[in-house]
Amino acid sequence: MNIVGITACTSGIAHTYIAKEKLIKTAISLGHKIAVETQGTIGIENELKKTDIDNADVVIIAADIKVTGKERFTGKRIVEVSTQVLIKSPRALLNKIQEELKV
């Protein structure tokens, strides 16, 4: 499965990066391709490439705040959760998405 994601928390520091790392680590361990953008106090980092978005099977937005640039995902399957969901149970989330998409 090809995954793109955005992580963002209220302070834009700790949970943003913890959620990103958990998502990447878990996705890779399950054999998925992934690219994750962070949006925080220092702005956007690792901005998603158009080709990654175009090839994505799913977009995961793990955010506790409003994120910018969601219009890039028009026509894509979008899953929105809090950063806590991703931090506490990334494998369960990815397994559920995989099951729903039958990938």
Rank of each mutant, 00 (worst) to 15 (best):
E37H: 04
S89E: 14
V79S: 04
K49R: 12
G40N: 05
I87C: 09
I65V: 15
I13M: 15
I42Q: 14
L101G: 11
C9E: 06
V58N: 10
E100I: 07
R77E: 07
V59H: 00
I13N: 14
E47N: 07
Q98N: 15
I6H: 04
I42L: 15
K22W: 09
L30W: 11
I18A: 08
I65P: 09
V85E: 12
L30R: 13
V85N: 07
E37Y: 01
C9V: 03
K33N: 10
I3G: 08
L48M: 11
D64N: 11
V58M: 06
V103W: 13
V79I: 11
V67E: 13
A19V: 10
A8Y: 14
I24C: 06
L86T: 13
I24T: 12
I44E: 04
E80T: 12
R91T: 14
I24W: 13
T16L: 04
S89P: 01
E37C: 03
F73D: 09
K70V: 11
N2M: 02
R77N: 10
A19Y: 09
T51Q: 15
V67F: 11
L23F: 13
A63R: 01
N2E: 09
I61F: 05
K70D: 08
I13P: 13
I18Q: 07
E80S: 10
K96Q: 15
V85R: 12
D52L: 03
G31N: 12
G69M: 11
A62D: 03
I97W: 03
I53F: 00
I34G: 05
V4Q: 07
A62G: 13
I61H: 02
V59E: 03
I61N: 04
H15E: 05
T83E: 07
D64W: 04
L23N: 11
E37A: 03
I65A: 01
A8N: 13
T74C: 00
K66N: 14
I78N: 00
D57W: 12
E99Y: 10
I34H: 05
K22Q: 15
G75D: 01
I24L: 10
T7H: 09
K76C: 02
E45G: 13
T74M: 01
K66F: 14
L86P: 01
E21F: 04
E47D: 09
I24Q: 12
K20E: 08
T51F: 07
P90N: 14
K22A: 08
I60S: 02
K49W: 01
V58R: 06
A92T: 04
A62E: 06
A8L: 11
P90F: 12
E80P: 05
S11R: 09
A62N: 05
L23E: 14
A14T: 13
D54T: 08
H15T: 01
A63E: 04
V81T: 14
I3C: 05
H32Q: 05
E71L: 11
